[in-house]
């Protein structure tokens, strides 16, 4: 059975991570499995654990009163689920649901934030990995909003 730090380093997101930092993150991590349809988290809940998908697919949705949930993004293998753990008030802004059987690494957000505070070099390294992911998502969201396929 593989250790958590070796599982972490297999993820493209953590590629090139040195052993010490992998151990630091692994100390906040756990292995999780979600059945299709099971929620990873709900809007409004404390953002105390985020996820890295090892296998499977996760749908992000928002619910409006009287309507079915609207899926606005799906995430796949190697992708990070959840950004609200990084910024106060640390509450989820949407629901995350497994769209297929999903294996993920859950990272205790408070634990990782504390380690980032204690070691700013490590914290900066983490920011350099997370920030591009979220900037890319922002760009993708803009493209989605442009509605580029609408009738001319």
């Amino acid at each position: 059975m593989k250790s958590l730090d070796s599982l972490l380093r297999e993820l493209p997101f953590f590629a090139g991570l040195d052993e010490e930092h992998a151990r630091l993150i692994a100390g906040c991590a756990r292995n999780c499995r979600f059945e299709a349809g099971q929620y990873l988290f709900h809007e409004g809940d404390p953002a105390d654990e985020f996820f890295l998908i090892r296998e499977g697919r996760v749908a992000l949705d928002v619910v409006a009163p009287g309507q079915d949930p609207i899926v606005f993004s799906t995430l796949g293998e190697g992708e990070v689920v959840g950004a609200s753990w990084l910024v106060p008030p640390y509450r989820w802004m949407f629901d995350a649901r497994a769209a297929s059987p999903t294996h993920a690494l859950g990272i205790d957000a408070a634990c990782l934030r504390r380690k980032c505070e204690e070691d700013h070099d490590f914290g900066y390294l983490m920011m350099k990995r997370f920030l591009p992911v979220f900037v890319k998502r922002l760009h993708a969201t803009r493209l989605q909003m442009f509605d580029v396929y609408r009738r001319g």
């Binding site: 609207i70 899926v71 606005f72 993708a140 493209l143 396929y149």
Partner: peptide
């Protein structure tokens, strides 16, 4: 880009 409730595939932009 925009799903409905019957869609179970990917949602998001093609890039």
């Amino acid at each position: 880009d925009h799903a409905d409730t019957l869609w179970h595939g990917n949602v998001g932009v093609v890039p």
